[in-house]
Simulated assay, not measured.
Amino acid sequence: MVASIRVVESSLTTPKVRIIAIDRPWEWLGAGWKDLWRAPATSISYGLLFVAMGYLLVYLIEGQFQYALALTTGFLLAGPFLSMGLYDISRRLEAGEPATLGHALMAWQCNVLPILMFGGLIGLLMIVWARLSAVLFGVIVGGGRHLVLDSSVAQLFFSGSGLTFLIVFTLVGAMIAAAVFVISVVSIPMMLDRKTDFITAVLTSVTAVQANIGVMVLWAALITIFTGIGLITFYLGLAIVLPLIGHATWHAYRDIVDSDDLEQHPI
């Protein structure tokens, strides 16, 4: 029997969060892989949108390394929110319903206000991160320096102030990414799947992490590794990697959140 706890102990309406085994993320990835190939055209097409966004970011920063770093990591902060359509694909496959790209792109309409509130929060965090990145670069490296994506970047970032900036940038970025992970790991699939308000969804996500620290650390590490693989393939790998993570995240939500007592959206 799987142990579970209430998100709010005195509440009769909030869902229970299950305490799960440490090896469950591998099961989520396996289930996500099956979903990917049950609807390959829809999933990969959705993934290709991320690839296009990546190349658009590269074009917009015009080869300036410091901005490429900030925008790429900021783009990844928004990944859980932007993957909403992938959760919808898995939801439809689970229900035996057709899963099209049109359905995936319009998934946010099923619970508009809470989802838009979460999107606004993610947007605010991205703006803060972009500004903070610029400040860190200006203070540590020097605001007047504009780096291009060539061999001089490696020389700078592994010596002197460049190395200091890289370390501080990574630590601060990791803290912000961890905060986003904690509030989003099950909240967005939950808002998509159920008639759940923004606060309840976020509290459920926080409780899920608190109740399953080891599992969530492993899951966050796997997401980071797989996303890194997608990035080092010049974004092309994201066409497969992000659908895999997105589908797996849906199964993580279904595994962790015991929401039988909540009203489910019609497909």
Rank of each mutant, 00 (worst) to 15 (best):
Val8Gly: 12
Val8Glu: 12
Glu9Ser: 13
Glu9Ala: 13
Ser10Ala: 12
Leu12Arg: 15
Lys16Leu: 13
Lys16Trp: 01
Glu27Gly: 11
Ala31Tyr: 15
Trp33Pro: 10
Gly47Arg: 00
Val51Arg: 04
Ala52Gln: 08
Tyr55Arg: 14
Tyr55Asn: 07
Tyr59Asn: 15
Thr73Asn: 09
Leu82His: 11
Leu86Val: 09
Leu86Ile: 09
Ser90Ala: 00
Leu101Gly: 10
Gly102Tyr: 05
Val112Leu: 15
Val112Asp: 15
Leu113Tyr: 15
Leu121Glu: 09
Met126Glu: 12
Trp129Leu: 03
Val135Pro: 04
Gly142Phe: 00
Gly142Lys: 01
Gly144Glu: 02
Arg145Gly: 14
His146Tyr: 13
Asp150Trp: 11
Gln155Gly: 13
Thr164Trp: 13
Val168Thr: 09
Phe169Ala: 06
Leu171Thr: 07
Gly173Trp: 01
Met190Leu: 09
Asp193Glu: 11
Asp193Pro: 00
Ala201Pro: 01
Thr204Arg: 01
Gln210Asn: 13
Val215Cys: 08
Phe226Pro: 10
Thr227Asp: 05
Gly230Val: 04
Thr233Arg: 08
Phe234Cys: 09
Leu236Trp: 13
Ala239Leu: 07
Gly246Met: 05
Ala248Asp: 02
Ala252Ile: 01
Ile256Cys: 03
Asp258Gln: 13
Gln264Leu: 12
His265Gln: 06
